[in-house]
């Protein structure tokens, strides 16, 4: 038996979600930064690019939301 010197209490799912949120955070940031840049360079194109912004946002944000969901669903079960 190994002596436990330090232990993490509470739900480790929170740590997992913290790690899982990094990627979608960067991704959503990239999507909107690209949209802002393209709109600043070419204001007429904003209507053209907006649908792709929402598609990209949805696909990326889905990952972050799945992170929340899995944190709740499998919190401490396995």
């Amino acid at each position: 038996m190994v002596d436990v010197i330090a232990a993490v209490g509470g739900s480790t799912a929170a740590i997992g979600y913290g790690l899982a949120a990094i990627g979608p955070g960067i991704g959503v940031g990239l999507v909107f930064s690209a949209y802002i840049q393209s709109t600043a360079r070419q204001p007429e194109s904003s209507r053209l690019t907006l649908p792709y912004v929402w598609i990209g946002f949805a696909v990326i944000e889905a990952l972050a939301l799945l992170g929340i969901a899995f944190g709740f669903i499998w919190a401490g079960d396995f």
Partner: peptide, 13 residues
């Protein structure tokens, strides 16, 4: 969430 993404693609895209 797949369905949600699909709906966004159809309605907003």
């Amino acid at each position: 969430i797949g369905g949600g993404v699909y709906l966004i693609v159809r309605r907003l895209g």
